[in-house]
Design a protein around this nucleic acid. Structure first.
Lengths: 356, 356
DNA sequence: CTGTTAGCGCTTTCAT
DNA sequence: ATGAAAGCGCTAACAG
């Protein structure tokens, strides 16, 4: 049945309006439903004549340059076929590896990953989430456990499964895949203590914008206290994302304020590398004059000289686990039996290198 | 008008079905249209009573955790409200800055950016594009000028504006925002020549997966020839994304194969940094024993010691220009007067630092 | 200013 | 195995 407005039958010309399923059906001389079924059926058995018809339909689609309208399909089936993930920053190998892991986990299930980044701000996360949820993702993966009340409300109202990653929130919104940033940093401090370091400082951000950073500082403080070391050697710089340049600045400030310091634990490998480079610029031997440790096992820390002792986390595994958990949760919702909240702990380990 | 299936009126309980506009309308006691208008109208003048009603509607939306169904809206208006961009890699500050620039340019126009990454493979790009185009983006931004024939066909058939970035393709699909990677690398070689270097090598990838890398190598070769320097000093390593570790390996190979080399031009700052660290490990002074230059002005090259001479490109400007151009093209299509193909050249410059 | 009606392109359901 | 009708949630167009 041709629609009122004229639709070009030209094979692949940039039509003013895209070709619809009805156009294809009209051309083949069948109903829309037959085309719909030909496109969705995976290629079943059927009669010989049906097989041929199906082939003819697919061929016609190709000829006409027809691409199924996923927006209409989504609308009709109430299944968008994608999941949303919000990460703090694109330009951070930890999070981009996590995104890879998510992709790997969900692509087999025919779901697409839609990515957004918050620049480490919960307000941005809220805005992003509003836009993302408006497109009806089948599930959401978040980084960290800190969100605005409005964001939490939207997430709850959406009724879709949520996985929080990279952290162990006290009150999870749904499922969790992560580790204790505080515990990991405390392990690192204990490792340095075992190596003989006693005047250990911490270099990190000030704000609570980066809650993982704050957790790491807390882990440092707790370990220092527990080991009976002298406290208070904490240098704070500005807002995340923590940069190499900030690490360099912080190191300069650190050595001016506490010249006796013998080791610096940095909130990430990026700031650790900045601190390391600053030492090289000043001619201070690392680790002889001062030891430097980081967090996250970034490429730069594995490849610089000396290489940086760090806390290694399997970022891609976080993504894979989050993706798999979300998949199970989505299936569970679909059959009407929501999954009770689960927590997956991912392991971390200290990677001793030449910088300490 | 309540729909057949029961819908919980509970404020923010995890409803099995998301709240719809009809639910909100029923709660407020108006029609769907009034809610629709209250949500879409920017906040005009109107009567005092209408103002109050609008406020009450918005408040009810908030209370009920209502999020507009963008899929239905898209379907109804035939405007998806998003643009798609494909970048080679997430974990590359050049491309993530470009993505930032795109976001900055389009968010004012009420468009959302949907990001995909191809891992430097045109086949991945094609697959991604198929899924993206099925969701009816209003425009597409691509990285580079190399795509599969099928991808080009889909793009053309979609009839939506396309911008290619980071390159100057010989046969653009639509609009272009970029610079000549070959010319930029040639400039760098001429800069090194002016500094007195004569036995200049190139470290880069082998494959044509990274066409920008291949262009840079071509620029190197042309400049070497033009300057009458000795040719052939090219070390190639594996597949992109080019890594720091590959740069280190390549440097070792380079010095073994051509011990007389006095400068190395690397395909990116990442491989340049790997090469630099390898020199430090071997105790070879940079730039005295060998000078090292990179491409892209990455954070690591600005912060390491010595800092790396590089070709600086304003990546965010590429994104902004691409976003603005796409916006104009989308508007032009909407009024039925497609924009003729445009090309925007973004500037680059040599950033001399201590590594040369 | 507000309500009513009629689709957007597809799939589901039921009939043939 | 195929077709016809209904409807997913929203908005454009028109009526009041």
């Amino acid at each position: 049945m041709p629609t009122p407005r004229a639709r070009g039958a030209a094979p692949a010309a940039a039509a003013s309006r895209p070709v619809t399923m009805a156009d294809v059906a009209a051309r083949v001389g069948v109903s829309k439903m037959t085309v719909s079924r030909a496109l969705s059926r995976t290629g079943g058995e059927g009669r010989r004549s049906a097989q041929l018809l199906r082939e003819r339909i697919l061929q016609t689609c190709r000829e006409m340059g027809y691409v199924i309208d996923q927006t209409a399909r989504t609308f009709s089936t109430q299944r968008s076929g994608f999941i949303a993930a919000v990460i703090p920053s694109l330009n951070n190998s930890n999070f981009s590896e996590t995104a890879h892991g998510i992709t790997a986990a969900v692509e087999g299930a025919g779901l697409q990953l839609l990515l957004g980044y918050s620049d480490y701000r919960v307000e941005n996360e809220e805005r992003l989430l509003r836009e993302l949820l408006a497109r009806r993702p089948e599930g959401v993966i978040l980084t960290g456990g800190s969100h605005t009340p409005a964001a939490c409300a939207m997430l709850r109202a959406s009724g879709i499964p949520v996985v929080e990653t990279w952290d162990l929130p006290a009150q999870p919104l749904g499922h969790t895949v992560g580790f204790s940033n505080a515990e990991a940093t405390a392990s690192l401090v204990r490792h340095l203590h075992a190596q003989g370091y006693r005047r250990i400082a911490f270099i990190g951000g000030t704000s609570n914008r980066d809650t993982r950073g704050a957790d790491r500082r807390r882990g440092y403080t707790e370990a220092i206290r527990e080991l009976g070391l002298s406290e208070g050697r904490v240098i704070s710089f500005g807002q995340p994302p923590i940069s190499m340049a900030q690490g360099a600045q912080a190191l300069a400030q650190l050595l001016q304020q506490w010249p006796d310091v013998d080791a610096a634990v940095c909130v990430s490998d990026l700031s650790a590398f900045g601190a390391l480079a600053e030492c090289q610029r000043r001619g201070w031997a690392v680790p002889q004059r001062i030891a430097i440790a980081g967090f996250g096992d970034f490429e730069v820390g594995r490849n610089c000289h000396p290489r940086i002792t760090t806390v290694a986390v399997d970022c891609e595994a976080i993504g894979r686990a989050a993706g798999e958990l979300l998949l199970r949760a989505i299936d569970a919702v679909r059959i009407g039996a929501p999954l009770p909240p689960e927590t997956v702990l991912v392991p971390f380990h200290i990677e001793p290198r030449e910088s300490t």
